[in-house]
């Protein structure tokens, strides 16, 4: 799972502004424009490298933190089949975290450093995981909406200019698409169930709909007025790290998802939602960017809980990791002797 809402915040000075007119930079941009893949040993602008490290590591952290809200229901899953599906899904998310940390490492940063940034709060992860999973239907809503939104974001990343990231995304997208269908199938079962199950499904949908739309990040054009436009979006498009704008992706998501919701008998929690025959798209109401900003800066319902759990798990595991290192060293010494 991933969100473009993680774009670099305005005013971040750690990403250098490049001189775009050096011979190397021009050659680099020409390769990008020719749709060539950039590989780890190739020359790249420092800003390109840092932007990728930031984006890939945030994506990796999101996968890892995302295990928590879903893991919240593994021991309470209603059937053994659903339990097995959820276990496999959460395992996939962990695997995505691993590929992505590996992809980031090709850019000259270690997984330990990245994990440290997550734990000390300096790195971000997708805000969507700062919302709680309160009922079983939330597991369906996450699969259907959150993985669904993630796929919309990620399909274009399979063509991202950086080779290792693009290749990791191909595999990840295949798995996410499976998760999305499983989530929808879970909702479908609820839609055919009792009044309690239908109510549970609608409640989950009401709570996840807007956060899912926020996953696509700030508006591309109106953003400045709202003070949260991602200033690096344009540069990322030029470098082909990002290939489709936030608003285009969000619109596509709404267009695809509304008929699916209707099929489930769900009411979309947006009084402004209306099919527009002229544009061939759904019009939808304004997004509450105050909520978005608040969750981003740490005031979401679960920000503190998610990070606390990750830190505690890391601390509790320290003696295990130390022991594994100590054992490996002893073994290497014995083998050398």
């Amino acid at each position: 799972m991933y969100t473009q809402g993680l774009d670099i915040p305005k005013g971040d000075k750690s990403i250098p502004v490049e001189k775009a007119d050096s011979a190397e930079a021009l050659r680099f941009q020409a390769r990008i424009d020719a749709d060539e893949k950039i590989e780890p040993k190739d020359w790249m602008p420092e800003g390109y490298r840092k932007t990728l490290i930031r984006q890939i590591s945030q994506h990796a952290h999101s996968e890892v933190i995302g295990m928590q809200p879903e893991g919240n229901w593994i021991t309470r899953a209603p059937t053994l089949r659903r339990k097995a599906i959820l276990m496999a899904k959460v395992q996939d998310e962990g695997g995505h975290g691993l590929y992505l940390y590996s992809a980031a490492e090709t850019l000259g940063v270690s997984r330990d450093e990245l994990v440290e940034q997550l734990l000390d709060g300096s790195a971000k992860y997708s805000s969507i995981f700062n919302y709680p999973t309160l009922t079983w239907a939330d597991i369906g809503a996450i699969g259907w909406l959150v993985d669904g939104a993630a796929i919309m974001n990620q399909i274009p990343l399979c063509r991202c200019s950086y080779g290792p990231y693009a290749r990791a995304m191909i595999r990840i997208c295949k798995e996410e698409s499976f998760h999305q269908r499983q989530g929808y199938e879970l909702m479908l079962a609820l839609s055919r169930g009792s009044a309690e199950q239908k109510a549970m499904m609608q409640d989950a949908f009401d709570r996840w709909w807007w956060p899912a739309l926020m996953m696509f990040g700030p508006h591309d054009t109106k953003g400045d007025a709202e003070g949260i436009k991602s200033q690096h979006s344009e540069q990322s498009m030029k470098w082909r790290i990002k290939r489709v704008s936030n608003d285009e992706l969000r619109q596509k998501f709404v267009d695809v998802t509304v008929p699916q919701a209707e099929y489930l008998g769900l009411k979309v929690p947006d009084p402004h939602l209306k099919w527009n025959a002229e544009t061939g798209h759904y019009d939808f109401g304004p997004i509450d960017w105050n909520e978005f900003k608040n969750v981003l800066i740490g005031n979401g319902p679960c920000n503190k809980k998610r990070l606390k759990m990750r830190r505690e798990a890391h601390e509790r595991g320290a003696w295990v990791r130390e022991a594994a290192m100590a054992y490996a060293a002893k073994k290497a010494k014995r083998n050398a002797a």
């Binding site: 890892v64 295990m67 893991g71 691993l98 798990a313 990791r321």
Partner: peptide, 20 residues
């Protein structure tokens, strides 16, 4: 399964879930 997101390493999280 109680170890989900709580294992000493990400690799072990996946391994324990696989056993489960």
């Amino acid at each position: 399964a109680e170890w989900c997101a709580d294992a000493p390493e990400l690799e072990e999280d996946m391994a324990l879930m696989n056993l489960a």
